[in-house]
Nucleic acid binder design. Sequence first.
DNA 1: TATGAATGAGGCTTCATTCAT
DNA 2: AATGAATGAAGCCTCATTCAT
Lengths: 225, 225, 225, 225
Amino acid sequence: MSIKELLQELLDSNNSKLVMTEKQLNIICAAIELFSEKGFAATSTSEIAKRAGVAEGTIFRHYKTKKDLLLAIPDCIVELQISKTFFTQLDNILEQPNVSFEKFLRAVISNRKDFASSNMVLIKIIFQELPFHPDLRLKMTESLFKPAKEKLVKIIDYFKDQGQIKDLPSKTIVNFIFTTIFGYMFTCYIAQLDLDWNIEKETENLVRYIMNGLCKPASPTSEFS
Amino acid sequence: MSIKELLQELLDSNNSKLVMTEKQLNIICAAIELFSEKGFAATSTSEIAKRAGVAEGTIFRHYKTKKDLLLAIPDCIVELQISKTFFTQLDNILEQPNVSFEKFLRAVISNRKDFASSNMVLIKIIFQELPFHPDLRLKMTESLFKPAKEKLVKIIDYFKDQGQIKDLPSKTIVNFIFTTIFGYMFTCYIAQLDLDWNIEKETENLVRYIMNGLCKPASPTSEFS
Amino acid sequence: MSIKELLQELLDSNNSKLVMTEKQLNIICAAIELFSEKGFAATSTSEIAKRAGVAEGTIFRHYKTKKDLLLAIPDCIVELQISKTFFTQLDNILEQPNVSFEKFLRAVISNRKDFASSNMVLIKIIFQELPFHPDLRLKMTESLFKPAKEKLVKIIDYFKDQGQIKDLPSKTIVNFIFTTIFGYMFTCYIAQLDLDWNIEKETENLVRYIMNGLCKPASPTSEFS
Amino acid sequence: MSIKELLQELLDSNNSKLVMTEKQLNIICAAIELFSEKGFAATSTSEIAKRAGVAEGTIFRHYKTKKDLLLAIPDCIVELQISKTFFTQLDNILEQPNVSFEKFLRAVISNRKDFASSNMVLIKIIFQELPFHPDLRLKMTESLFKPAKEKLVKIIDYFKDQGQIKDLPSKTIVNFIFTTIFGYMFTCYIAQLDLDWNIEKETENLVRYIMNGLCKPASPTSEFS
DNA sequence: TATGAATGAGGCTTCATTCAT
DNA sequence: AATGAATGAAGCCTCATTCAT
């Protein structure tokens, strides 16, 4: 499903604080598409208007500046409840009896794959523009990164309590997982480096890599500090 | 050392195919700095000229278009022999007797840290602009990514032969390592997300994570497929 | 009293040909304020709408174009009977026995001071926009300047008949008086040049200046031609 | 002579700090003409470019913003040494033996007339825009109004010492003279109110008005306070 | 070779005005 | 009558690039 369909559905469901006219939806979706394709700075408002099928002036009735369009994207992400569904699904997993860390990891990653197809455009924008827009960074950190991290830390604590994973600081573990998965996504989807992977198999490998590292199991495992 | 000092040194040493006037050096360095700070599309040639201390027209005497400036950066990276020194250092490590995979990993990562200080600007540009410039992608793939991968695959093969690491496809392993380290770098340096890490300790943890994953060593380790 | 209060009062009194809804009053007053503050060309209709507390479209229901708003201001001035009250007051003065030219002058000037507080905004607009809008000039000339001049000429004739003032053409005298007082107002209120005058004293001096000029009274006064 | 010819002459004479290319001269002159005709806010940069015969972008190479064009006009006035020639001429008059205040006044006013023909455009702009641009007001006050006033005060002091004019504060007298002459100029040239005056005769009357006021000489002259 | 003035296309944004509701 | 979303022309300004010097 495209971003536009997702947002449309969200608006129709009246489950959201977002209030948007048809045209405003067209505008933000066109902006998302184009920012994702060409980058924020290389996209012109006239292009956005053309793709949205509105007059250029109409953009500025809804978003005071071009930058505001960029800063509206995090709101979409939040309202799309991407993280909420994400974590709801994780909660469901955790509620099952005898959930292993492996099961959890696989859920995270496969979740990310569903993600990718529809939300990759959003993720691309966010990560491409983060380095250049401190205000975007702030907004994302406050409304997404921080809450997500806290939630994940709790989950990791749970597995640590169960003795399923090593006794590293939970924050460190979260960073590792995030970092690994993100690096993977970047390589595939953002940098578009052709990795000609068999996705199924590689995902499997990725899970095992995160769980068991690269060492031979027999090798004497030095404890983490 | 700044990029400019590195390039200056390189030119003085006559060890390079690069032939540059003083001014040309100023130009490319100014461009590198600015592209890194603000992104390619958001940097103007007049800004570059100002920082380089040359007239605007001078830029276009050396580089036909602004884009050519961007495409000249990979050449700098190649000529700076960043990868060459990188791999030379790795070779040195491998030539030592009884080199462990752990030692190798630590070398790679600490290498990356030296890297960061002087070459991060280059890396930032490359990864930020890769998604938008297929020609840049092609150039980087041909002149750097492919050779680097091949070299790494050989190294990984060596450790596999030694029985130090798991029997996964070498390409997969290289991707894991690259992906993990890159994800880490991105989070810290490029997205500038504040991770308040104790770098020393975290590096140590990173090494162990790559080697041994996150599972408790006691847990029954399912074999990789 | 502000312009709005004056117009409100006028409308409530039913003594005027002006028929205005509450909103229309808000619009014209907002326009007057803003034209006075920033000039006609630099004021936007959206600003006017905002200050008037109406929708942008509402303005154009009452005034076909922005220019029509400007051309409506002379009507306000006329309907506010500014000149009428002005001249009524003068008439009252003239009806008193033994009115001196000095008394008259002082009345004109102090009148102008009361004026200033509430009507300066209107005067500012008129004089600032006169040079650029021939239609405004025409309207003002026909409906205000000409009748005012005629009235003043009659008054001056009266004083000339009484032998109180010199035997110059009445039109010339009116021009002098107008010109002197207007110059003074412009310097103080419109150009906002800070003259740090003691207003009371300077007004006194202004009266005497107009009456007796700057020459020492003893000096041989050459007759006017 | 037009402003352009005056500036051209000035530049050719190398007697000025102003350094201007041919195009820059065209731009500032076009701007002066148009600001004078239509007002600053109602003049577009594309119009200026067209009249100056340059590309629109060229304007912004010489003047960072449209407002800077406006603020450059006082510099032209200063460099044209309008005030300098003005005061030099006055000095010449004062150096003659037995100069009367009358002679001086007549010189001021006739001077203003020469002025009018070529410099009225500049004066129009200044006075029309003063109310809206505090920075313009500041610049004009510092570089012209203040020095001019000081000079005039000295001159007036001279005539007071000679016993030719009344013992009013010199500042007050200067204000009266300025105010009267300016009011006259405004009425004629700026508001373009048609006064159908015989200029020769009216100037004569203006001089006498300033000197002797409007009262019959026989009338008992009350002293100034 | 180096300059920097000049260009004009195009960028972002504002504006007066219209029109369906 | 009133609204305010929509428009597209126009406004100010920046840009990459050219070219005479």
